[in-house]
């Protein structure tokens, strides 16, 4: 999604109305319930959220000049900077060491990378279309954000083809996005 993304792809910038900002916050908390106690810290009431509309119907939401969320369709997605700050609040999966290189160049994640020895999937099922944060074997921090194209149970049983569609990864256009 952000493989090629730069300043020129931003079409309009505007400040978000406080009522809209409230709605945005409730929506985000709905999606990631873990954020309920800290959402006011993340987006203080007094702060102004900036809304960037970009190429390809991508929308960015910035607080204090830093991208917190972005969205392409209805779902709000967290930026990696945000994930790094609050790593426990998102559903997580892990890929093995062999996959890191490809993930960092923006490839979708194949099932074997998740099911092999170095990979890790949670015991309980995560349903399809959930946004997950991708970690890597032997690394402490997240390296990508993506969407499950199959439920994790399916990934385990099928073990073939694309398991996660990658949205945002370390070193992509959004990661390097600066004003």
């Amino acid at each position: 999604m952000f493989k090629k993304f730069s300043k020129e792809d931003v079409h309009t910038r505007s400040n978000v109305k406080s009522s809209v900002q409230r709605g945005l916050k409730t929506r985000f908390v709905e999606q990631y319930p873990g954020f309920e106690p800290i959402i006011d810290e993340l987006v203080p009431k007094k702060s102004t959220v900036q809304h960037y509309k970009c190429e390809d119907k991508i929308q960015l939401y910035l607080v204090d000049g830093e991208v917190l969320f972005y969205q392409k369709f209805d779902e709000l997605l967290p930026s990696l900077k945000l994930v790094h700050k609050y790593p426990t609040l998102f559903p997580r999966v892990q890929v093995d060491r062999g996959a890191i290189k490809f993930v960092l160049s923006g490839a979708n994640i194949m099932c074997p990378g998740l099911t092999s020895k170095g990979g890790w999937l949670p015991e309980e099922n995560i349903p399809k279309d959930t946004t997950v944060v991708v970690y890597a074997e032997g690394k402490e921090h997240a390296l990508a954000v993506g969407k499950l194209l199959m439920s994790t149970d399916e990934i385990k049983s099928v073990n073939k083809d694309i398991g996660i569609e990658l949205y945002h990864y370390l070193g992509d256009g959004l990661w390097n996005f600066r004003e």
Binding site: G34, Y86, L89
Partner: peptide, 8 residues
């Protein structure tokens, strides 16, 4: 808050 941000 209950969760404090991690410094990376």
């Amino acid at each position: 808050s209950a969760v404090t941000p991690v410094q990376v």
